[in-house]
Design a protein around this nucleic acid. Structure first.
Lengths: 194, 194
DNA sequence: ACCTGAACACCGTTCAAGT
DNA sequence: ACCTGAACACCGTTCAAGT
């Protein structure tokens, strides 16, 4: 059996590398996981990773994309009928364990187009749910409120929750509080529309 | 004139290094500024920086501490009588240009105690102003509201605003919106206390 | 088409040797 | 006490050589 011949199909090897990288990134963080760690965990030589992924950032982006799409699939299955706010809160709650990795994306944003794309996918997911929520309450173009601003603040809270600090309050709590405050404000003085 | 003898007092050289580092960090970012860049900008050899600062993170923390304390001094002078919310908004507005550096602190938090301390100083500054604001409105221990949660969300918005994204909405706008929403919510259904 | 490991590039940090 | 520059360590990436 030749050591240098492809033993397994491309997709499977890609999957192995992705699985190894995911595990290592979660365990040690992005910066402390070396390409040598990933290659040896997947049972290949250092250089071989570059046959499947162009760079460490490429494999990182792929890991993050896979995480988010899995989470979205789970939400679609388990929370099919739920309102946007509970879906959002549930998703954020599920993602708590990958906070450090989301933060690592921020480090890499300036250096990698692929990481930027993966990161935008996260933000678009949140923006979509916030928009849905606002529309459901008929606030998407209410006079007293700037829906764009609400979106941006929600995204900022999410991003801010991913920064490690002493308090370490989970994102889903803060997003819930924020959205409830905004909704209460709208339902108050300005009165409810439609 | 001996090339190897101390020409200038320690404090002045430290100041030169700090000034050079500040300029370079602002211009090129933390990651792309090398220790060689800093040393040559200050006119010393590579290794000499380590006589004044233990590491790149130490010099970075010193740079950030100096920035914040200068900003606080300016605010105290120019906004002496202003209410906490406008002081906070003004400070955040002034700090817009150093966003990328604040974000770089996040990268270094796991690796450096000094950066953690510098970062905490930023957060404490914000928390102090938020607390002051809540106390001024008599909401620091109102029944319907969790002041700790308000603090954490405000901090999260600040942190989130420091992450680069396409929208790039300034932190002070978002903080103002957040605090106004929270205050409106409290002044609404629960009614104003005291 | 895929795999290997030596070699390169880059940069933070150290250190023996200077004054 | 301060300063220098060569040398080291670490790791992402490349590449000539294999099957």
């Amino acid at each position: 059996m030749p050591r240098n011949r492809q033993q397994i199909p491309r997709e499977e090897r890609t999957g192995d590398l992705l699985a190894a990288a995911t595990e290592l990134f979660l365990a040690k963080g992005y910066a402390k996981t070396t390409m040598a760690d990933i290659s040896s965990a997947a049972g290949v030589a250092r250089g071989n990773v570059y046959w499947y992924f162009d760079s460490k950032d490429h494999i990182f982006a792929a890991v993050m994309n896979r995480m988010l799409s899995r989470e979205i699939r789970i939400l679609n299955e388990e929370q099919a009928g739920a309102d946007p706010l509970s879906r959002l809160v549930r998703g954020l709650s599920d993602m708590r364990y990958s906070r450090p990795l989301h933060q690592a994306m921020h480090d890499r944003l300036p250096h990698s187009e692929e990481v930027r794309e993966a990161h935008n996918t996260f933000l678009n997911w949140i923006v979509g749910l916030v928009d849905e929520l606002m529309a459901e309450r008929g606030l998407d173009n209410a006079p007293g409120i700037d829906a764009t601003l609400v979106r941006d603040v929600a995204v900022a809270v999410f991003e801010g929750a991913n920064v490690p600090n002493d308090q370490n309050r989970p994102a889903h709590e803060m997003i819930r509080f924020l959205m409830e405050s905004v909704l209460a404000r709208c339902a108050g003085p300005q009165g409810r529309k439609r």
